[in-house]
Amino acid sequence: MEQPILRVRGLAKRLGDVQACLDVSFDLYPAEILAVVGESGSGKTTLLKLVAGMLAPDSGEVLYTDAEGRVHDIPRIPESLRRRLLRTELGFVWQDPADGLRMKISAGGNIAERLLAGGLRSFARARQAAADWLARVELPAGRLDAPPEEYSGGMRARLQLAKNLATRPRAVFLDEPTAGLDVSVQARILDLVRGLSAEFGLAAILVTHDLMAARLLSQRIIVMKDGRAVESGLTDQVLDDPSAPYTQLLVSSVLGEA
């Protein structure tokens, strides 16, 4: 069987008095979307930041196998390598696009940033790549030179995706990418992620409190509560036949069918 690109083992992190993450383990495979669901404060975002190397875990491993087959324990590799991976083979989409975009730099510049950081030295090619990705996330070509501060929330979310995807990452970490957006805009973004995953073999960890989004996008799911993974498995199986008391509560509290 295919090898996972990410193997997470026994992650734990205390933040102050709170055990934000405890003994979480999972694998992520190429072209797979793994949803992490739970209510606010359940440790979803902490888990994502631990996996992305933005927080140092108290214990546990995050073993990433890079494009050349080398294995890196994300929390323990040098900062320079971690940053390089995070702007080339990995990507992080922030819940608030203002955290992931330069609001006064043109949309094209935002998309080009990772390419320029990777050593691209042709203006024409940087701009072309930016235009291509703008189109790919269905933003109007005429907005290429406009800064994101002039964009709507949904457009910012898509621009942030484009920025992360421009280097053709192998995995992206999505922190509530559709939070605060209209349902129709959400659908567009989720559909975009799904298509890119299928097309490029992109793997993703999707942190969301939206069970519908998790069902539409992910093949597998982890349910978090109080920093622990209380249940995990096939997304449809966990949502249709939840076994943990908390998951049953979570699923039954959703209006209508999730």
Binding site: G233, L234, D236, Q237, D240, D241, S243
Partner: peptide, 8 residues
């Protein structure tokens, strides 16, 4: 559903 793995 059990035959599909949808129910465990």
């Amino acid at each position: 559903r059990c035959l599909y793995g949808n129910y465990l």
